[in-house]
Design a protein around this nucleic acid. Structure first.
Length: 850
RNA sequence: GGGUGAUUAGCUCAGUUGGCUAGAGCACCGCGUUUACACCGCGGGUGUCGGGGGUUCAAGUCCCUCAUCACCCACCA
């Protein structure tokens, strides 16, 4: 025997992966039909976690499945520089060494992070190999590779040329700790308890005053107006008047704007255009001055010297104290409100004025929505499509400037003598350039990561003219997690449509999260992140993959469950032992040479196999990974091992066993690539070939009637088994009458049903009533008493069923409206139940007579 | 404030266009050692499909409503 008793994954996995790579098994073939997946690149800065097994396994299953269908598959791996994410990780390291980013220039920092990332990149790749991912490593792409950078530049340029990019001074979400701006989506809003301060603003030239309510009193130092609703009768007389801003000498206008909610606070709102997004809009509409009173470090600026340089919190306290002292503070209420925080360091995000590059989103979003509404892209689950549409509908212009070092520099230069003169230039390795005698300075900012990664589906394929782009674009599948539906999927769609004039992918599959075992979210700070590598070492890569995808539906979060992994490990071993059994079957047995079905069982298993194959093809088309796996699992374990192999011990058909094993290995390979290949190689099935490149077997023909005969044998066996268990005996003989099928299969039934003898002819004291045959069991008189009570219970149940079926059939509406086959089926059931009931009634009478 | 999803066996969850007496794995109970496998085999399920209402011949599945939980989005000063 070449196969040892149990499958030991550790002994095979790395050799097998090396074999695959060496043989070029993962290179796209020449086949015309193509299938493509580009991996959502994991961060290059750390380790993969167990969630990556889910995403990787799903992609790999799809890739291997399509390879087995004979398609040319491109499964492209990559890793992500992950701009700000990675910089924060690196900054934490710096902090440990007692340094900070301010100790270095941006270029120095960039180079350091480059080295830091390079250390980790191989690690991630080797982890992906451990998971068995069948990626084409020759296509490996890093998000700072020149083709990705070049694509970002060109996209920026064409957006600029088309007037879809502008530089503007707008309010941005600014983290004063990290010193950079964020897109709206990167800000985490939290509901927090706060206060509502009511402040009196006296009218100029009158003893009257207006009272405004605010949650951020310190920003009053930057107020440039007070606004009321034009329909608010209380305040109409004040519109156009002027109030005096307390704590300052400034006088500011009272104006009307319909954005003001008459029912909130006092109905009069202080307007701080430089520090509040609504106020900013009001300021623009009414042409107000913009006074920044908070700087990029979160300190007070442009204010009276007593507040200058204070933090926002300190200033708030002092302003409130001063207002109180002045008598301007009318009252304070407790108030819950939503506050934006940096998603990385939790610092309160300040809306600050800053010049940034913005993408005008309107047209891009509209086109994306149109494509979605026309169902050009299939979503799994479908609900995600509608969510994406809603998101796109509410999208604001997109700030793509980041004030960090780690990222792709923005290829724009500013005229040092004329700040409004910006030009596009790709010489970003220079800080200063001279063109036509004018000196320009490079924008020191870098692109938002999502701006460059939006091109991932086509930049990786060398858009626009490569053969690969033509063959593999749009991608067949974008498989990713729900957390990046908005930041990434939406942008790949918008910019993909803009750049390539085509959808970037045909399907989007959103997986759920692998939660911790108790159902909570895995997080580094809680320390409940599961590292897949030790689990793979313990149970094998296949077991972890199958254990994780098993029973998971798209977009449903679910805890990691090690028991599933153990079960999957057992399943690998089951498969191993099926192979081991077949290996040991004497090849000089019957039917040597010709692969065809002979017995009822042979036909039956071929029928099962073809049903599984058909279902697999259709279910994989709609990415029902778990259903496909579960069906294969039950085919292998229940049908193949428990029934067919057991039956084949009576009538061995070695060529058919070989065929079944081969077909099963091919079908299961996408789910369990290592163990299937290990068996394939060890037994040298199909001399020297590699399973990973095999296509599905042709289905053998079989006789459906013969297959059905085995169903009958199966149910007889099941009835004998359960009856004997019920009686608590393992010693019984089976008698039968009038059945050629049973006569031929006496040995088989004896073995499967575990009776002592099978005899043709009348005999035995206990009639079986479920099966399609006239059969009796001979058992001791003593145990039949127990059986009688069981029969009575069965009688009750059958009566219930019969009346149910009777009712259904006497319902005219059912008979006339339900499909014919259902009505027919119901009739058959009724007849069968009645027949069974009669048999049981006879038996009960007989027992009474005894 | 808006939106989405969930609620099915002790546990974790399937159940696609409505259609067999609603399933899987685990757990649990019993029996078992036979040409592979104890990481095994055989047998064992009385579930108000969250509550209520509706549509239909037929509802776990479609509609309405209520309850609970989870997540997402949002500029109420």
């Amino acid at each position: 025997m070449k196969l040892p008793k149990a499958y030991q994954p550790q002994q095979y996995e790395s050799d097998i992966y090396a074999l695959w790579e060496k043989s070029g098994a993962f290179r796209p073939s020449d086949a015309k039909t193509s299938y493509s997946i580009v991996i959502p690149p994991p961060n290059a800065n750390g380790n993969l976690h167990i969630g990556h097994v889910l995403t990787g396994a799903l992609e790999d299953i799809a890739a291997r499945f399509h390879r087995a269908k004979g398609e040319s598959v491109l499964f492209l791996p990559g890793s992500d520089h992950a701009g700000f994410e990675t910089q924060s990780v690196y900054e934490k390291q710096l902090a440990k060494a007692g340094k900070s980013r301010f100790d270095f220039s941006r270029d120095e920092l960039y180079n350091q992070i480059w080295d830091f990332v390079a250390l980790n990149r191989d690690n991630v790749q080797s982890q992906m190999r451990s998971m068995g991912l069948s990626c084409d490593w020759q296509h490996f792409t890093f998000t700072l590779d020149s083709k990705i950078v070049k694509r970002a530049f060109e996209t920026f340029k064409s957006l600029w040329d088309d007037g879809l990019i502008y530089r503007g001074e707008r309010l941005v979400n600014f983290c004063t700790y990290h010193g950079t701006a964020f897109a709206d989506i990167e800000v985490i809003h939290k509901e927090e308890p706060g206060h509502l301060w009511y402040i009196r603003y006296p009218l100029v030239g009158s003893s009257d005053s207006l009272i405004v309510a605010t949650t951020r009193p310190e920003t009053m130092l930057g107020d440039t107006a007070v606004a009321v609703n034009p329909d608010d009768k209380r305040y109409q007389k004040y519109i156009g008047k002027t109030v005096k801003l307390p704590l300052t000498n400034r006088e500011i206008p009272v104006l009307s704007d319909s954005f003001v909610d008459m029912n909130f606070g006092t109905g009069a709102v202080k307007i701080t255009p430089a520090h509040d997004i609504n106020d900013f809009e009001v300021g623009k509409r009414h042409d107000l001055p913009f006074i920044s009173v908070i700087d990029y470090e979160g300190k007070m600026t442009n204010v009276h010297s007593k507040y200058l340089g204070l933090s926002v919190e300190e200033a708030r306290k002092l302003v409130v104290d001063d207002l109180k002292e002045q008598g301007s503070l009318v009252k304070v209420e407790k108030h819950k409100h939503s506050v934006g925080h940096c998603y990385k360091c939790d610092t309160v995000i300040q809306p600050l004025l800053r010049e940034q590059w913005f993408v005008d989103i309107d047209k891009l979003a509209k086109e994306a929505i149109a494509v979605l509404e026309k169902n050009k892209i299939t979503f799994y689950p479908e609900a995600k499509k509608q969510q994406l549409i809603s998101y796109l509908n509410g999208l604001h212009d997109w700030n793509i400037s980041r004030q960090i070092a780690w990222g792709i520099p923005i290829p724009a230069f500013q005229n040092v003598d004329n700040p409004s003169d910006w030009i596009y230039d790709e010489s970003v390795n220079q800080e200063i350039i001279t063109i036509e005698g004018k000196t320009y300075r490079r924008d020191s900012d870098v692109f938002d990561t999502w701006f460059s990664s939006s091109s991932w589906p086509y930049a990786t394929l060398d858009f626009p003219s490569s053969a690969e782009f033509k063959k593999f674009y749009p991608l067949s599948l974008m498989e990713t997690g729900g957390e990046i539906l908005y930041p990434w999927v939406s942008r790949m769609l918008m910019l993909g449509l803009y750049v390539t004039k085509d959808i970037p992918f045909k399907s989007v599959y959103i997986h759920g999260y692998v939660m911790a075992e108790d159902g909570s979210k895995m997080s580094k700070s809680v320390g409940n992140v599961i590292d897949p590598i030790p689990v793979i070492k313990q149970f094998g890569s296949d077991a972890v993959r199958m254990g994780i995808i098993w029973g998971r539906s798209p977009a449903v979060n679910r805890g990691y469950d090690q028991r599933r992994v153990e079960e999957a490990r057992n399943f690998c071993n089951k498969l191993w032992n099926i192979a081991r059994y077949i290996e040991g079957v004497d090849s000089n047995q019957l039917n040597r040479g010709e692969t065809k079905a002979v017995t009822e069982a042979d036909n039956w298993i071929l029928n099962k196999l073809s049903v599984v194959m058909v279902n697999m093809l259709s279910n994989m088309d709609s990415y029902r990974f778990s259903e496909v796996f579960e069906e294969l699992y039950h085919f292998v374990w229940d049908d193949f091992a428990d029934w067919y192999i057991e039956a084949s011990k009576i009538n061995p058909n070695k060529p058919l066993l070989d065929y079944l094993l081969e077909s099963t290995l091919i079908m299961l390979h996408p789910f369990a690539p290592f163990v299937t290949e290990a068996i394939w190689q060890t037994l040298n099935i199909d001399s020297g070939s590699i399973l990973a490149t095999k296509t599905f077997n042709e289905m053998l023909s079989y006789d459906k009637n013969k297959a059905k005969q085995f169903d009958k044998i199966q149910s007889l066996v099941a009835e004998v088994r359960s009856t004997m268990k019920l009686l608590g005996t393992n010693k019984a003989d089976l008698y039968f009458e009038d059945s050629k099928l049973l006569a031929v299969n006496q040995d088989l039934i004896k073995r499967l049903a575990k009776v002592q003898k099978v005899n043709e002819g009348r005999g035995g004291s206990l009639k079986l009533n479920n099966s399609a045959f006239r059969c009796w069991l001979s058992v001791d008189q003593a145990v039949t008493v127990k059986y009688a009570s069981e029969l009575k219970a069965k009688q009750v149940k059958l009566n219930e069923l019969i009346s149910q079926l009777d009712n259904r059939l006497s319902n005219k509406a059912y008979v006339s409206k339900a499909p014919e086959r259902l009505v027919e089926q119901t009739k058959n059931q009724l007849n069968q139940a009645k027949h069974e009931l009669e048999t049981i009634a006879d038996e009960i009478l007989r027992f009474k007579a005894n």
